[in-house]
Amino acid sequence: MAFAGKVVVLGGDFRHILPVIPMGSRQDIVQASINSSYLWDHCSVFNLTRNMRLASSDISEDNSEVNEFAKWLIQIGDGFTGDSTDGESKVLIPDDMLINDTEDGFTELVHFVYPNIVSNLNHTDYFKKRSILAPTLEVVNEVNNSIMSRLPGEQKVYLSSDSLCVEEGLPLHQICLKEGVPVMLLRNIDQSNGLCNGTKIQVRHLGNHVIEYIILTGDQTGRVVLIPCMDMIPNNDTLPFRFRSRQFPLIV
C-alpha cells in the first residue's frame, strides 16, 4: 500500500518548482517529478479554484478584470497560450500590461511602480501592494541599486563573515540598506508572528547586528519586529568547499 496507508499531502505547483538534478538534462528533471513516479497512480489531485496571489481584501472575487488575468496566467502555465517550438514558447503580452518603449525603459518602470517614492516612505500601504519582479539576480541587484539611489539618508552595508576551508570560494556577500527601504524575507523565522518566507517588511532602524522592521503584509501588518543577523551554514556535498556565514535572511 502506498505510503503505508498514511494520508500524505503533496502541496505546491509542479509548474513553478521542478526537482533540482545537478547537471541533469530536461528528461532527467521530468523523470524525477512526482507525477512520473509509480506512486502517482495512487494520488488524488485537488485543484484550487481561486488564485490566492491575486486575492486581497479590497479586490472582489467578481472582479472580471482580475478573473481574466488569472485565467491568462493559468493558460500560460498549461502551455495553451503562445506558439510552442522545441520546448520554447512565444507569448504575446496584452498592451495594457506593457510600458511604452523609451530610451530609458528601466527608469520608466521604476517610476511606474513607485511614483513619488520619497514622499510615501512613511505610508505602509504604499509598499504593501507594489513590487518589481526580475528574472535573474543580476537584474534584482540593478533594481535594488536604482531604487536605493533615489532614497534619502545614509546607506549601510552589511557583510557576511565567511570562513572557508580552502582559499577559493564564494565572494563575500553584502546587502545595502537604508531606512524606509521595503524588503522581503527569504526564510521562515517566526510563523506565528507573521515572519515567513515572502513576507514584505520595511526598514525602520539599522543597527550593527539587529535591524528593526515594520511588517507590511499578512495578519501582523503594522507590527514592529527586530531581526538579528543569523548563522547560515549550507550543506552541499557537490561544492568543493564548506563555509559558515552570518547574514540577514532577506532580499531588497
Rank of each mutant, 00 (worst) to 15 (best):
M1S: 12
M1H: 14
M1L: 07
A2H: 10
F3M: 10
F3C: 12
A4F: 09
G5V: 12
K6N: 11
V7C: 13
V9E: 06
V9I: 15
V9Q: 06
L10F: 13
G11N: 13
G12L: 04
D13E: 11
R15Q: 00
H16G: 01
H16N: 00
V20C: 06
P22C: 03
G24N: 07
S25R: 04
S25A: 01
A32E: 14
I34N: 05
N35D: 11
S37W: 11
S37A: 04
D41M: 06
H42M: 06
V45P: 04
F46G: 01
R50S: 08
R50I: 15
M52K: 04
R53I: 01
R53C: 11
A55Q: 13
A55K: 13
A55F: 08
S56A: 14
D58Q: 14
E61K: 10
N63C: 15
N67K: 13
N67E: 11
A70C: 07
K71G: 02
W72K: 01
W72N: 04
I74N: 12
I76D: 01
G79H: 01
F80Q: 11
F80L: 15
G82Q: 09
T85L: 09
D86G: 01
E88D: 10
V91M: 09
V91C: 09
P94C: 05
M97Q: 08
I99L: 15
N100C: 08
N100W: 03
D101Q: 13
T102G: 11
D104L: 05
D104A: 09
G105N: 05
L109C: 12
H111M: 10
Y114H: 03
Y114G: 04
P115T: 09
P115L: 03
N116V: 01
N116T: 05
I117L: 14
L121F: 04
T124N: 12
F127C: 06
K128Y: 03
K128N: 12
K128E: 15
R130P: 07
S131L: 14
I132Y: 13
A134K: 05
L137F: 05
N141Y: 05
V143Q: 08
S146E: 12
I147T: 07
I147S: 06
P152R: 06
K156W: 04
S160N: 11
S163T: 08
G169F: 10
L170A: 06
C176H: 13
L177G: 07
P182G: 07
V183D: 03
M184A: 06
R187H: 02
I189N: 01
S192H: 09
N193A: 08
N197S: 01
N197Y: 02
N197W: 01
G198L: 05
I201Y: 03
V203E: 09
H205R: 10
H205V: 03
L206H: 07
N208A: 08
V210R: 10
I211W: 02
I211K: 00
I211R: 03
E212G: 00
I214P: 00
I214D: 00
G218C: 06
G218W: 10
T221F: 07
T221L: 01
G222V: 04
R223F: 02
L226G: 00
P228H: 03
C229V: 02
M230H: 00
N236C: 14
D237H: 14
T238R: 07
F241W: 11
F243K: 06
R244E: 10
Q247N: 02
L250G: 00
L250K: 00
I251V: 15
I251M: 09
V252R: 11
V252Q: 11
V252F: 07
V252D: 14
